[in-house]
Structure formats: structure tokens, C-alpha cells
């Protein structure tokens, strides 16, 4: 239980420190802008995430719902 806030804090520090030192220019982003590199779930995963929401106790933080809006958990 105590590990979770520590994990969040350490990731936040790492991410912030990375943002301070990295500077990828717009013209260097052809790979980052590749359609397969999107930092979100695909449109075709939409209903997959819905059934996982029903069939498992955990939900949220994946682009799908975290509960509410339907007769699910």
C-alpha cells in the first residue's frame, strides 16, 4: 500500500527530469508521429476494454471507462 505513492512520486520525478533535459525538435518527430506510436488505445480496442471492465474487478487509466454510464461495475 505504501509502495504505490512512492511509485507514483518516483515516476513523476523521473518524468519531470526527463522533460527538463530532452528537447526533440519538431523535424525530428517523424518516428514519434508514426500512427502506431500513439500514446492511447486504438479505436478498435473500444469494446475490448468494455468487456474487460465487466469481466474483471480493475478498471480505468487505459482510455476506457472506470465505472458508471452503464450497468457495469
Amino acid at each position: 500500500m505504501k509502495k504505490i505513492p512512492l511509485l507514483i512520486l518516483s515516476f513523476a520525478i523521473i518524468t519531470c527530469s526527463m522533460s527538463a533535459c530532452s528537447s526533440v525538435k519538431a523535424y525530428q518527430k517523424n518516428r514519434i508521429n508514426d500512427s502506431e506510436m500513439e500514446l492511447s488505445a486504438r479505436k478498435s480496442q473500444k469494446f475490448e476494454q468494455s468487456f474487460q471492465l465487466y469481466r474483471e474487478g480493475g478498471s480505468g487509466a487505459n482510455g476506457g471507462k472506470s465505472g458508471g454510464g452503464c450497468g457495469c461495475n
Binding site: 513523476a12 518524468t15 526527463m18 522533460s19 530532452s22 526533440v24 525530428q28 518527430k29 518516428r31 514519434i32 506510436m37 500514446l39
Partner: peptide, 10 residues
């Protein structure tokens, strides 16, 4: 929080 880390990693 989304971050571009390098030209290949985000």
C-alpha cells in the same frame, strides 16, 4: 502526463 523522451521513445 505524456512525454517525448527521445526521437524513438515516448
Amino acid at each position: 502526463l505524456s512525454q517525448v523522451i527521445s526521437t524513438r521513445l515516448q
